[in-house]
């Protein structure tokens, strides 16, 4: 674990760059995370996905199934990889401040 400065504030991240303090997440933090994930600058679709993930996470404490994400945002997998080269889990979820996916997923 290490502390880094994201969006002007100090945040702890894990070995793979996922933030460990989800409460500190905000727009600026997301943008700084996006820079490292080659998803910067963030356009409307980036935010659509990130906000969707964020809302789902706040409600269910977990990231949604990728298929649900695709259906409910109308962005297909190809498009998601264009927006977030790291993919939905390692890219988009990281930027949305979600914890790293665990278990057999």
């Amino acid at each position: 674990m290490a502390k880094v400065t994201l969006g002007g504030i100090e945040i702890e991240i894990d070995e793979d760059g996922f933030i460990q303090e989800p409460d500190k997440w905000n727009k600026e933090v997301a943008e700084d995370l996006a820079k490292a994930e080659k998803a910067y600058p963030m356009g409307e679709d980036h935010w659509k996905l990130v906000n969707y993930l964020r809302d789902y996470y706040l409600k269910y404490e977990i990231a949604p199934p990728v298929r649900m994400l695709v259906k409910q945002t109308g962005l297909d997998l190809k498009k998601i990889y264009e927006l977030f080269p790291g993919g939905p889990a390692k890219g988009a979820c990281k930027i949305a401040g979600l914890p790293k996916p665990t278990g057999c997923v």
Partner: peptide
């Protein structure tokens, strides 16, 4: 409830999906 972090509440949501 699960090593994936799925809670019973999230499970219900996913099953409906």
């Amino acid at each position: 409830g699960s090593s994936t972090g799925i809670t019973p509440k999230a499970l219900a949501n996913i099953i409906a999906f």
